[in-house]
Amino acid sequence: MDPFRVLIGRTVVLPMDDVDTDQIIPARFLKGTTRTGLGQGLFADRRYGADGTPRADFPRNRPDAAGATVLVTGRNFGCGSSREHAVWALMDQGFRAVIGPSFADIFRGNALKNGLLPIAIPAEAHARLAAAEDASVTVDLQAQEVALPDRTHVRFTVDPFARHCLLEGIDEMEFLLSQESAIAAYERTHEEPSGRGTSQGRT
């Protein structure tokens, strides 16, 4: 994974609360077996009309939004399904950060594991940012600070371990694999029977 340190990017604003992962990527795009190419399903039912043509009223479809890497959205972004495809689709379309007042738990976790930074900022700063279309922001993960277009700086926090992984470009799997001896010790001493040995239950 590439390290995430500083991101200078342009924003596109999706001014809605409770954007669920079914909206981010509808289920009919989940039938693949790889992580790639999911961008075509991103916000599919909002981006395109029933006939498949791009809808002019969808922010991302404006020409100036094409290169945006920062999505600014409302509270509780990513609620609903656990599909990591939502994160893969956003990243496939070039997004590297999502800024909102709050995030759903599973989405936040999925995003951090893939190098898409979920940034929760206070409502007041969020309102200023959401009012500025196609703005430029600078995200500094080391300092946990976003520089807004009006030159104010807003602090945010990311869980320290995820932040460390992002800054170093490493993933959680490495850390878990390094816990081998502790895991083996737990299995020897604490583990409950799996119940899989019974004759009726044999799989």
Binding site: E172, M173, E180
Partner: peptide, 11 residues
């Protein structure tokens, strides 16, 4: 998420 599915499979 799917990344975690991988972690649990492995560890």
């Amino acid at each position: 998420g799917t990344s975690e599915v991988g972690y649990v499979l492995a560890t």
